[in-house]
């Protein structure tokens, strides 16, 4: 589609290059995503998942790897089926099988994968210092199933932080839906109403810059 160089590894044969997986982006840059990209991918992915809930009967599935998160040229982010989804189709899949997956379980898995993308390349004994709002978002996303609303006190009791931190926790103590995640991502911006355009632009730039880098590296080779 871009007319030059080989396609990004992993692209399906044929067709235009209109999407990249988060895994391809990480591999190409060989570094983690930045915080703004994490907010944007969360927002955009939850937006598409939310649309899918209302517009189709597509089964919910957990996010098992960054390869499933697809960033599109136009800034959309979607969740693809695993490359090999036989695992999820086994009768033994049970709780983790996508046919029984709840929205909070999808959010949990998305939070984990987003964190791993932020943590990409770091050693086991190293931890990235995240901004408190993003860390709290991911923390709550990844713990949604256990938290289940009533366990919120556990977080607050464990963190005897400043009052404004307590307020922040209260705001994000109840992530139960894609909409909740999107609201929190929007609240991260100075003007919440700009969230759709802003996060789409961030993801569009992520796609475009990754393709530029790929083209550049191809020419160098």
């Amino acid at each position: 589609a871009d007319g030059e160089g080989p396609r990004v590894p992993g692209e399906a044969a044929g067709g235009s290059q209109d999407e990249l997986s988060l895994e391809e982006i990480l591999l190409l840059y060989n570094q983690p995503i930045n915080e703004e990209q994490a907010w944007a991918v969360c927002y955009q992915c939850c937006g598409s998942l939310r649309s899918a809930v209302t517009s189709s009967s597509q089964p919910r599935r957990r996010v098992r790897s960054a390869a499933q998160i697809r960033v599109w040229r136009d800034g959309a982010v979607t969740l693809a089926a695993p490359a090999s989804d036989t695992e999820e189709r086994t009768p033994a899949a049970g709780k983790s099988g996508y046919s029984h997956c709840t929205e909070t379980e999808v959010i949990e898995s998305l939070g984990i994968i987003i964190y791993k993308a932020l943590d990409y390349g770091l050693k086991e004994n190293e931890e990235r210092e995240l901004s408190p709002p993003l860390e709290q978002l991911i923390d709550h996303m990844a713990n949604t199933v256990e938290a289940d609303g009533s366990n919120d006190e556990g977080y607050e009791a464990a963190d005897e932080g400043l009052e404004d931190e307590e307020d922040e926790k209260k705001k994000i103590s109840a992530i139960r839906s894609y909409r909740d995640v999107m609201k929190l991502c929007a609240a991260h911006l100075s003007t919440e109403s700009e969230a759709p355009n802003h996060y789409q632009a961030v993801c569009r730039a992520l796609f475009a810059e990754t393709m530029e880098l790929h083209t550049f590296l191809t020419k160098i080779k």
Partner: peptide
Amino acid sequence: KGKSLYKIKPRHDSGIKAKISMKT
């Protein structure tokens, strides 16, 4: 362009990385 700037600290048992690791 596209650069990630971030600080790295030692991993803590009570940190988010440890909690995420326990889930995976």
